[in-house]
Amino acid sequence: MSVLTFADVSAGKIKKSSLEAIYYAKQIAAKTGGKTIVLLYKANEDAIKSAAQVGADKIINIQNDINEVTSDAMVVAKIISKYATAEGCKNIVLPYDIHGKATASSLSGILKCAVVSAVTNIPEVNGNAFLFKKNVFSGKAFSTMEVGGDVKVITFLPNSFQFQMNTSATPEVVNTTTDLSGIVSKIKVKEVQKNDNNGSIPLPEADLVVSGGRGLKGPENWNIIEDLAKALGATTACSRPVADMHWRPHHEHVGQTGLAIRPNLYIAIGISGAIQHLAGVSGSKTIVVINNDKEAPFFKSADYGIVGDAFAIVPKLTEAIKKFKSSQH
């Protein structure tokens, strides 16, 4: 039973979450038997090479123009469903990111099969029954879930595990033109607006995040957050009140009703740590809290804490980071 995945290529490179998807698909194929088949859209040599290194046995490189591949999840889902049938794949793996979620759910409807969201482990496989681990209740608990049925769409939580590379892999590469009969996009894209990230990595993919809350007193004080983020090579984020007061754009809001993120490092400055905020950041590997209130609940969920005035501490920390970075060269 081969495993199929579709990898997102952006600016000539396969996105990290898609590389993880290939690696994850490989681990499932190892349990079910069969190949790891990767669908790519107009991929270059480098992208093909990186797909091979993380586990692709067969790469299907689609050559025809399909503009909707990046804009319409339903079109992507229909293309995947076509290849799943043609290649006899019963398990389809996608990353649980904004595009993967929309594609996986549509695909589950098209194939009338189970879809499992945001799993964090390689499943135990017992015939058709797969045992997965996944977070529930916004990270406050996790669960073991059994998923059955002949066909499954599996989405895994990005940044849940490290993938290993095999640099000598030589997969079969098939360049193909997809038959698009019966596949029509019903979405017309008028315009695409990119968030202004000051050139930093978009928040959902960022490994390092510096986040500010109400304790910063106003948008005019955000320079200390931005300076620290710049020194670290981090992306900036904020708490809900800050976005609601329009001190910062909504796309920076992390928390239960904002973005849930899982960076390696989350530095929270002037954020008290309300339960709703924690729900969006508790998956972070390391949490640093800087707050002048030593009773702030966030310290209970932090790995490292500094009690004191953010306006004095953060610029000093920025300098210390710069010094550390230059000593590394």
């Binding site: 996790f142 059955g148 049925g149 209970k300 932090a302």
Partner: peptide, 20 residues
Amino acid sequence: SHTQYKQFELAAGRSACKFI
């Protein structure tokens, strides 16, 4: 329906915060 929750577990808290 093809899924079934077998077991739940509360997420373990972090070990105590190290103050600097």
